[in-house]
Design a protein around this nucleic acid. Structure first.
Length: 384
DNA sequence: TAACCGTGGGT
DNA sequence: TACCCAAGGTT
C-alpha cells in the first residue's frame, strides 16, 4: 500500500469515502451519457472503445467505433485482417500504432487465450497496447473487477479534490493517483465509479472553463473549498512541435497515374501511402513561416535528388500550388508542392512504389498530410 | 525519463 | 495565429 502522506495527500476517513462514492454514483446514475459502448458488456467492444478514446474525443470516436465493429465484429476477425483494412478503418483517427497493437493483441488472444478476452487484470495488461489505464478500464467495466482506471480526467479531478501538489504530466506521479484510487474506488460498482470520475472530468471538471459550482462532489473538494481551483492540476506546459520543410512531388506518368510510396514501419505514418517527400533542409529556425517556404523556388539539386532516388526522368512543370502545413504532436510539416511528368526511367526495387490511378486512391490508406497535398493540387487544377 | 506518435475542436 | 487540449502506450 502506497504511503500517501509521503506525497502530501491526506486520505479521508471511511465514512467520508462512502459518502463520496454515493454522491458521485447518484450523480452518474442521473446524468451519464448514453454512449454506444455503454450498451454492451462485450469485452471486445469495450476494448475497441477504450483504445479509440485514448487522446481522442468522444464525438470523433463514435462513427469509427460503429464502423470498426461492423467490419471486424470479433477478436478473430481482427486477428486475421489485412493491414490495409485496419489502417483504412483507423484512417483519420491518428496514433495509428494503436490499431497495429490491437491486431497484435488479438493475435495474442487467439494464441494464448483460445480467442477469448482474458478475465484477469494481469492477463489483460499483458496484451500489446494495453497499459495500466486501459487494463483497469476493461477489467472494471467489462468484468466488474475493482481496478482503478487512472486517466487524465481522474488525475485532474483528484488533484482538485485533494490539492495534490505533484505534476500530473510526470509519469512517475501516476502511482500517487493510483494509490488514492485503490482506496476510493467503489468495490460494488468499480466500472461505474471509474466512468463517473471520467464523465465528471470531461465536462464539469474540464481542464478549461470548469464549472465547479455544478460539481456533485464540490463539498468534498479541497481546492473548491479553499479557492485554489486555478492552481490544480499542476502540469508543465507541452513542448512545441519542431518545424521541418519538405518538397512534395506530385508525379504522374503518361497513363495519368500518380506515383505513391508506402511509408516504412520505422517512419512517421507507417504503412500509409504518400506522394514522395524530400526533406528540404535541416530543421528550420522557429521563425521561418510557411509563406517563406513556399516562396523559395524548387532547388535544382532537389530535382536531381528525386531522379537519383526514384530513377525517373521527369519533365518538371512550373505551375504553383498552395503549400501545405500539418502539425503533429511533436513535429510541424511545411510542404511545398511541385508537379512533374515522368517520361522515362524505372523505379528502384528498394522502395515500395506504385503508379495509381485517381479512381483507385480510395483503397489506399492516406493520412492527413497527403490528403491536404492532394486537395492543394486539385484546387489549382480545378481553377483552369 | 523523455521522445515519439495524429488529429480536430475550442479559445 | 497560436496555443491548449483529449478515456495513453511504447521505446
Amino acid at each position: 500500500m502506497l504511503d500517501l502522506k509521503k506525497y502530501g495527500v491526506t486520505m479521508w476517513e471511511e465514512e467520508k469515502i462512502k459518502s463520496f462514492r454515493k454522491a458521485l454514483l447518484d450523480w452518474y446514475d442521473a446524468n451519464k451519457r448514453d454512449l454506444p459502448w455503454r450498451r454492451t458488456r462485450d469485452p471486445y467492444a469495450i476494448w475497441v472503445s477504450e483504445i479509440m478514446l485514448q487522446q481522442t474525443r468522444v464525438d470523433t470516436v463514435i462513427p469509427y467505433y460503429e464502423r470498426f465493429l461492423h467490419h471486424l465484429p470479433t477478436i478473430r476477425d481482427l486477428a486475421v485482417a489485412e493491414e490495409e483494412v485496419i489502417l483504412k478503418l483507423w484512417e483519420g483517427l491518428g496514433y495509428y500504432s494503436r490499431v497495429r497493437n490491437m491486431q497484435k493483441a488479438a493475435q495474442q488472444m487467439v494464441e494464448q487465450f483460445d480467442g477469448q478476452f482474458p478475465r484477469t487484470y494481469e492477463e489483460i495488461a499483458s496484451l500489446k497496447g494495453i497499459g495500466p489505464y486501459t487494463a483497469g478500464a476493461i477489467a472494471s467495466i467489462a468484468f466488474d473487477l475493482p481496478e482503478p482506471a487512472v486517466d487524465g480526467n481522474v488525475m485532474r479531478v483528484l488533484s482538485r479534490l485533494f490539492e495534490v501538489n505533484h505534476d500530473i504530466g510526470v509519469p512517475a506521479n501516476r502511482k500517487i493517483f493510483q494509490g488514492m484510487m485503490d482506496i476510493l474506488i467503489d468495490p460494488d460498482r468499480p466500472g461505474d465509479f471509474n466512468q463517473a470520475l471520467m464523465d465528471l472530468g470531461s465536462d464539469i471538471e474540464a481542464p478549461v472553463n470548469p464549472r465547479p459550482e455544478d460539481s456533485p462532489v464540490k463539498a468534498f473538494s479541497a481546492a473548491y473549498l479553499n479557492g485554489t481551483m486555478g492552481k490544480y492540476p499542476i502540469k508543465a506546459p507541452k513542448k512545441k512541435p519542431v518545424p521541418v520543410a519538405y518538397q512534395g512531388m506530385i508525379i504522374r506518368n503518361q497513363h495519368n497515374e500518380f506515383l505513391l510510396e508506402k511509408n516504412q514501419s520505422s517512419q512517421l505514418l507507417a504503412g500509409f501511402w504518400s506522394f514522395p517527400l524530400l526533406e528540404k533542409g535541416a530543421v528550420l529556425d522557429k521563425q521561418v513561416s510557411l509563406f517563406e517556404v513556399a516562396e523559395e523556388p524548387v532547388q535544382p539539386d532537389t530535382r536531381q535528388s528525386f531522379t537519383d532516388q526514384y530513377g525517373l526522368i521527369v519533365d518538371w512543370q512550373d505551375e504553383e500550388f498552395s503549400p501545405v502545413q500539418h502539425i503533429f504532436s511533436h513535429r510541424k510539416w511545411l510542404i511545398d508542392l511541385t508537379e512533374g511528368i515522368a517520361t522515362a526511367g524505372s523505379l528502384p526495387a528498394d522502395r515500395e512504389l506504385k503508379w495509381v490511378a485517381v479512381v483507385d486512391f480510395h483503397s489506399y490508406p492516406f493520412a492527413k498530410p497527403q490528403q491536404k497535398m492532394w486537395e492543394s493540387y486539385l484546387a489549382t487544377k480545378n481553377k483552369k
